[in-house]
């Protein structure tokens, strides 16, 4: 998956976790905790969904460093590097 594909999937996940943001334009610099209406709990939800979808784990210490959509995409790219990405319809979580 290239960066654009990952970005598309991250935006899709944000919309899935916060449906009220459908139609809100987002770019690389959009702040994904307050600016576009994602609060800290939704942010955690988005991260956990992405981790399930990309079968990877972003260390918690790094969460605080993720502010923008671009940084979130970078983190997914970094940690999903060697993981195979499931299809759109696949289940998002294998936890517990």
């Amino acid at each position: 998956m290239n960066r654009e594909d990952v970005k598309k999937k991250v935006i899709q996940t944000i919309h899935q976790c916060a449906p009220e943001l459908e139609g809100v334009s987002m770019d690389e610099n959009s702040i994904v905790n307050t600016d576009i209406g994602v609060d800290s709990m939704e942010f955690i939800y988005i991260i956990s969904k992405l981790e399930g979808q990309f079968n990877m784990r972003i260390p918690e210490e790094e969460w605080e460093n993720i502010s923008t959509l671009g940084e979130l995409v970078d983190a997914v790219m970094k940690y999903a590097n060697n993981a195979s990405v499931p299809s759109e319809s696949s289940n998002d979580s294998s936890k517990s």
């Binding site: 709990m41 955690i44 939800y45 956990s48 918690e60 969460w63 517990s96």
Partner: peptide, 30 residues
Amino acid sequence: GRRHIYDDCKFFQPTILPIVPAVIFHLLKA
């Protein structure tokens, strides 16, 4: 912890949950 806040209920199946409004709002929504 934070990472499991959305799956702790299904994992532990509690009968009682002490919580703050912002968190229960999101757990319910999800």
